[in-house]
Nucleic acid binder design. Structure first.
Length: 263
DNA sequence: TTTCTCACA
DNA sequence: TGTGAGCA
């Protein structure tokens, strides 16, 4: 019995397709040990080791066109450099996946805490939040795609962020995203009255702001500083065709007995 | 079962 | 950079 194996046996052994082995042959990186009388390719131990080497290099991202050069001519230094480069790529990918994992956890957490609310209104104790300015709006202008493209500072993953809409005393609107301290604006630590719900951008929004102001007045809260509208667009995954908004305002600590506001 | 070739993603 | 199909 011959010790060499056929292409399908080699493919099974190395967990690749027959096609792929023939493709490596076409590219000049893996020749069979010999071709039998019936034109079948036959492979021995040398070819098995060579294929395992090829597959390892492919896993490291080496293009098929470079395999031959890499296996036959690379110095130890060149091989080490190749592995270091690949390690760097893997670390970048791990970083990307870690950020993705944290984002998914945040979305699930936000959705869970929103759906467990017994009332859209709540009082929250918040730590200071530092905000970075994104776009300043003219009072008359509407926020459109063009405006975001032209005027917003580039923010990676903008629509995965909590976008803060802040109106100043002259009713000028500025958009912010959360950032590390110091940032351009600070929402101080303290107790915030909050109203959360999905809404359409215009009509329902005005209504929401009005309701919020009325609620604060009814409950005797004194609003300190600007009212902030936080857009969590990623939560619209759970409320189709509506964006999720949370209105927040720092309240003065006149009434600490009322921890939940119902309407 | 394998080879080869061509089309396709 | 492979894969799928058809043919001998």
């Amino acid at each position: 019995m011959k010790s060499e194996i056929t292409i399908s046996e080699l493919a099974r052994l190395m967990n690749v397709s027959v096609h792929q082995i023939r493709y490596f042959e076409e590219k000049g990186v893996l020749e069979p040990a010999y071709t039998s009388d019936n034109q079948y390719r036959m492979y021995g131990m040398d070819e098995i080791y060579r294929l395992s080497h090829i597959l390892l290099l492919r896993k490291l991202g080496v293009p098929v066109g470079l395999l031959k050069e890499c296996m036959d001519n690379y110095s130890a230094d060149q091989s080490r450099h190749l592995l270091q480069h690949f390690l760097h790529d893997v670390e970048d990918e791990l970083k990307r996946l870690e950020q993705l994992r944290q984002f998914i956890r945040k979305v699930l957490h936000e959705q869970q805490s929103y759906s467990s609310l017994s009332s859209p209104y709540a009082i929250k104790q918040r730590d200071a939040v530092h905000l970075a300015r994104l776009v300043e709006m003219d009072p008359s202008a509407n926020l459109g795609a063009r405006q975001i493209v032209e005027r917003a500072r580039r923010v990676p993953h903008l629509f995965e962020s909590d976008i803060h809409y802040v109106w100043d005393d002259s009713n000028r609107l500025t958009l912010y995203t959360e950032t590390e301290a110091p940032g351009d604006l600070v929402m101080p630590e303290g107790e915030y009255l909050t109203l959360q719900r999905p809404a359409d951008q215009d009509d329902e929004m005005d209504q929401m702001i009005e309701q919020f102001s009325n609620c604060a007045a009814d409950q005797g809260y004194i609003i300190q500083g600007p009212m902030v509208l936080i857009e969590k667009s990623y939560l619209s995954l759970f409320s189709k065709h509506k964006l999720h908004y949370e209105l927040q305002a720092l309240i003065s600590p006149t009434d600490r007995t009322c921890k939940e506001v119902r309407r």
